[in-house]
Amino acid sequence: MDYDASLAVRAPAGDSEHGRFDFAALLQGYMLPLDAQSLAGAARRLVAACPSLPQPGGGHTLARWQFLAGLAAHDLSLVKIYEAHADALAIHAELAAPRMPRDSAACGTAPEIWGVWAARSPRNELRFTSSRSGHVLLSGVKPWCSGAAFVTHALVTCVDSDDRDWLAALPIGQPGVTVTARGWEAVGMAATQSVEIDVQNAHATLVGPGGAYLRRPGFWHGGAGMAACWYGAAAALAVRLREAARRRDDPHLNAHLGAADVALSAARALLREAAHAIDAAPEADAMALALRVRAAVESAVEVTLHACTRGLGAGPLCRNRWFARMAADLPVFVRQSHAEHDLAALAKHASTNEDWSL
């Protein structure tokens, strides 16, 4: 295994047990980066060891993000799966919705692993025509379903006969849910197998009132938390750059390390500020805050990737399995950002509300 866990960015000691989690010990025996076959087992082991994280806005948001950043420093496919699981539990808690009863036949003794699949199918969105006490039958196609081959349940967006938006809890291992091989050709994040699923008259339970998924404050808390994953991966790559600079006194290498340091330090400061702001006002509209922190971290990722590939050259990209996969995975993961669309949305807020005084 060419991945050196001692060089990874560990989650800093926070105000809860999650800041001190030993990912290296948990992942012992796995070769990093994880492939599609090993990702399922690693995800089950992680969820069993740490079933949930502190609720966003509950006073320990930074500890939640530190955990995610520390996990991302080891493997991006694993944090993609675990972040969705933790987000699903946070959504259930925020909407005061009970989780579905455990299906022992489907899950056996393995832990439940939840996904959150909110992308719309351009041709056949999940739809239901009637609801009995919140129980519905879903039919349609859901794209971008990360971990579909092994997650046990998912929160999925869907629409009713009047095209109103809803959120539903869908057990995956039931008749009527088919995991396809369509829709995922990426080299980066290949292990997640974020394919399409076909759904035909599958049983699901509505979660919260109509439109609640997007209206709740936690929607933007989760969006900001995703940036912690991006940050953790970029910081782990920068550690390799720093180690090279310690071994070799090269002015160009040092300049690249300096650029990464500036970008990551600024992103880290904004992540910490955002976490404290969310905890101080958990019911406030956090859209602008989330868009700003995501854009700042995305910029830091771009600077860090540029610095690492220019400063380190082809060697780690071609000869170090972990580095090469991280460098391929991270640009795909970051494209969960909506780029200029998000910047334009942020500009509308900044044009009337933002005070930039120091």
Rank of each mutant, 00 (worst) to 15 (best):
A149G: 06
F150G: 01
V151S: 03
A154T: 08
T157Y: 06
C158S: 08
D162R: 14
D165T: 04
D165V: 05
A168Q: 07
I172Y: 03
G173Y: 09
G173F: 12
G176L: 10
G176Y: 09
V179L: 10
V179K: 06
T180W: 02
R182H: 09
R182N: 09
G183Y: 00
W184N: 00
V187E: 09
A190P: 03
S194I: 01
S194H: 05
I197N: 00
I197P: 00
D198G: 00
V199Y: 05
Q200K: 12
N201G: 07
A202L: 08
A202N: 01
H203Q: 13
T205L: 13
T205Q: 15
V207A: 04
G208W: 07
G208R: 06
G211N: 07
G211F: 13
R216M: 15
G218K: 02
G218S: 14
G218R: 08
W220P: 00
G223C: 13
A224C: 10
A228H: 08
C229S: 14
W230R: 05
W230Q: 04
Y231S: 02
Y231F: 15
A233N: 04
A234N: 03
A235L: 14
A238G: 08
V239A: 15
R240C: 12
R240T: 04
R242S: 13
A245F: 12
